[in-house]
Design a protein around this nucleic acid. Structure first.
Lengths: 191, 191
DNA sequence: GAATTCATGTAACTTGTTACATGATTTA
DNA sequence: TAAATCATGTAACAAGTTACATGAATTC
C-alpha cells in the first residue's frame, strides 16, 4: 500500500499531525497523489500498530489536542527498502470519468459535448494555475526542510504535472475544432 | 459508480459476456478506464438485480456455458441521464507510484533514480506503442458497430492518451538530463 | 505434454468515498 | 452571526486487488 509510503516519506522531513499531513498532500503532492483525511487517520493508526510511526499527544490551552506523529527507525528502514525497489507492475490506474462520457459522445448531441468540453477546459485551466503556484510552495518549503537535492526532485514531479495539463489543454482545443467542424453541414457532405 | 456506466455504454453497442466485456475494456478503453474481471462480474450481478441489464445463458456443446448480458430499456435511460450530467466534481484520482518514489529521490542515490527512470521510460514507450496500435482496433470496430460519429469520439479519447504519453516521454528525457547534470561535479561547483 | 484461451465465478482483503459527530477559534 | 479553519476521529459502504477454484478446447 503506497499510501503508507507517502506518509512515511513526508514524516521523514518532519513530524506532523494527520491534519497537517492532509494539507501537505493537497498542497505539495496533489499532482500525483490524493488521499482523504479519513484515509490518512486510518492508515496512521495501522502504521502505529506496526511500529512504523509513533505518536505523542500535545495538549494546548483553549485549542484542541494535537496528535503528532513521527517516523520510527523501523519506519525509516521500511521507507528506504521501498524506495529502492522498482515496482514489478507499474500501477497506472488512470480512470477518467470525463473521457468515459466523451467516448460515448455519439449517444448524445454535439452541443452537449461542446458544453461539457468547455467546462472541462475551464477546470483544467484552473488546475494548471494551481499547479503553477506550487513552484512557490516548493521554494518556501525547501528553505525550511530538505536540501537542494530534494528540491530538484520535487520540481521534477511538478514539471510533469504541468506538462501533462498543457498537453491536455492543447488536445482540448484540437478536439473542440474537430467536433465543431464535424458539426458543419458544409463539410459534412461536400458538393 | 462509473464502472456501471462504462458497462452500460459498451453493452449499448452489442450484448456481451463478462469475459468479452473485459476484453473490450483492455483493448478499447484501457487508455482511460481499467477494471478487473472480478469487478466486472460483481458489477454485472448488481446491475441485473437493479434491472439495468438482463442475462441469458447460452448452452453450447463441448464448450462452457456463456452468460450473455444485454442492456434493458431502464439501463438505456440510466446511461442517457448520466451522459448528459456533467460531474459536479471531476474525479481525477491520478495516483502514480513512480512519481511518489521520485519525489523522495533525495533519499536514495542518483544511480538508483536513473535506473528506475530508464525502466520507466521503457514501460512508457511500450504503452505508447500499444496505444498507437489501437487506432486499427477502432477502425475495425467502427465497421462492425457504431457509426462515423462514434468513431470520432473513440479516436479523440485515444488521441489524448497518445499525447499524454508523448508529453510524458519528453519530460523523461529532460528529467534524465537534469538529474545527470546535477551529478556532474564540473557543473556542481564551477571554477 | 504444457501453456494459453475461453468462461464462469467466490472469498478475503485493502483502498477510496461520503456522511456523521464534536467543538473551539478566527475571519468575513 | 455565519462561515471557515483547526483538530480529532468513526461508520458504512463502494470500488479495487489478489488468490483461489473449475474445466474444456486449442495452440505451441
Amino acid at each position: 500500500m503506497s499510501l503508507s509510503y507517502a506518509i512515511l516519506g513526508l514524516l521523514s522531513y518532519r513530524p506532523m499531525t494527520g491534519y497537517s499531513l492532509k494539507e501537505v498532500f493537497d498542497n505539495s503532492i496533489s499532482h500525483f497523489w490524493h488521499a482523504h483525511l479519513s484515509q490518512i487517520y486510518r492508515e496512521l493508526s495501522r502504521m502505529e500498530e506496526n511500529g512504523l510511526v509513533a505518536s505523542e499527544v500535545q495538549q494546548r490551552e483553549g485549542r484542541p489536542d494535537r496528535k503528532v506523529y513521527q517516523i520510527t527507525s523501523r519506519g525509516e528502514e521500511n521507507l528506504q527498502s521501498w524506495l529502492v525497489s522498482f515496482p514489478q507492475k507499474l500501477v497506472m490506474s488512470y480512470n477518467d470519468e470525463f473521457l468515459l462520457r466523451l467516448y460515448f459522445g455519439g449517444r448524445i448531441g454535439r452541443d452537449e459535448i461542446l458544453f461539457q468540453m468547455t467546462k472541462y477546459r475551464k477546470e483544467t485551466e484552473s488546475r494548471l494555475n494551481h499547479f503553477q503556484s506550487l513552484y512557490r510552495v516548493i521554494e518556501d518549503f525547501s528553505k525550511k526542510a530538505g536540501g537542494p537535492e530534494d528540491r530538484l526532485y520535487w520540481e521534477l514531479t511538478l514539471d510533469l504535472g504541468v506538462q501533462l495539463l498543457r498537453a491536455n489543454l492543447e488536445w482540448i482545443e484540437r478536439a473542440l475544432e474537430k467536433i465543431k467542424s464535424g458539426d458543419d453541414p458544409l463539410k459534412k457532405s461536400p458538393g
